[in-house]
């Protein structure tokens, strides 16, 4: 096909999303907002996985769907991470009455 989307475009989109998510992790002070930025980063990684699966030549013996399976596992890990993260944030909120990651400084010297 001639007028296909280049693989580059997906990679540039994923890199830009990753950078935006990283900026969010660095800048935001609310713990929930940090979790949202982490979700953006994981989604950017998923786009990369699926794009390389669709465009690339698979390694011998890797089956028909290696990238998609890995993306599904990443989604699973992200769901588990959000569940535990929300539990941790609620616990910290109950203890310090604030959702600001700068105030969680009990272990700072």
């Amino acid at each position: 096909m001639n007028n296909d989307i280049p693989l580059n475009w997906f990679l540039y989109f994923a890199a830009a999303s990753f950078a935006i998510g990283l900026v969010g992790v660095m800048l935001r002070r609310n713990a929930i907002a940090v979790l949202m930025a982490i979700e953006i980063i994981l989604n950017a990684a998923n786009v990369n996985l699926v794009a390389f699966w669709r465009y690339g030549t698979p390694a011998p013996g890797s089956g028909p769907l290696p990238g998609v399976i890995l993306a599904i596992l990443v989604i699973t890990v992200a769901a588990a991470e959000v569940a535990v993260g929300i539990g941790l944030i609620l616990l910290c909120y109950r203890r310090w009455r604030v959702a600001d990651v700068d105030r969680y400084d009990t272990m700072s010297g």
Binding site: I5, P6, Y55
Partner: peptide
């Protein structure tokens, strides 16, 4: 080189 791949 994989970077310039345009066809799947």
């Amino acid at each position: 080189p994989w970077s310039g791949t345009t066809s799947r």
